[in-house]
Design a protein around this nucleic acid. Sequence first.
DNA 1: GTAGAACTTGACACCGGTGTCAGATTCAAG
DNA 2: CTTGAATCTGACACCGGTGTCAAGTTCTAC
Lengths: 120, 120
Amino acid sequence: MRIGELARRAGVSERSLRYYEQQGLLLSERTPGGHRSYGEWAVDRVIRIQALYAAGLGSKKIALLLPCMRDADGGPTERTTGELVEELTAERDRIDRMILDLVRSRDVLDEVIDAATAKA
Amino acid sequence: MRIGELARRAGVSERSLRYYEQQGLLLSERTPGGHRSYGEWAVDRVIRIQALYAAGLGSKKIALLLPCMRDADGGPTERTTGELVEELTAERDRIDRMILDLVRSRDVLDEVIDAATAKA
DNA sequence: GTAGAACTTGACACCGGTGTCAGATTCAAG
DNA sequence: CTTGAATCTGACACCGGTGTCAAGTTCTAC
């Protein structure tokens, strides 16, 4: 499939897909004319990339992490090095804290919403 | 207390505190010489502001939301308008989705970490 | 009074993923 | 062919909370 379809199916812009490729997160075959061409595996990968971005990871960390993930994209599943494990653990802990903060903020919002809704 | 102590106790920079004030999120008394002075309530408020920022809300939304929160700061707890409730509900749903994404990303990280750790 | 820490305002820069525009090229269908 | 849609590369801008520096003022303790 080509970039337009991938963008639509993965729910991101074409701009972002080209950016991901530039960051080394997403490979593409090329047609003789230079247009990008993707296999089915690309959809899942892009969605995963999005999730990691949303989790606050930067391109570099994601680039290190992706090859270590056993996936449907048949990647080589590289050996995770000790140093990387440390970084990933730090990221996981950061995400855990972020989740706690978010839950609290959501509860605060719920409280306000409930108070306003049940003001009957 | 003054800005330095507040910054230390709330875990943010003085820069941020001045910015919050500029955005109308944090009031301060002033000494005759113009230095900011805060009561104890400020610590909780700043922490709450931080949590909302971390949840992806912008200054304007937070400014609308803060007066509606019943708190230890003795704020007037303004009436939440219908329009605001809609916005807040949208924010809450967005945060919910964000939490789900984060949990999934964290689980992915855990998987990679476990795989690398238990490779014995 | 006086020294040094703390505070003031104002300005400039950054980050990094994304939007968007321009101009050129390619693809697919008639 | 030809034509219109799709894609290509490259560049510029944005956002918005925060870091940081500069020059000046205030506070506090001796």
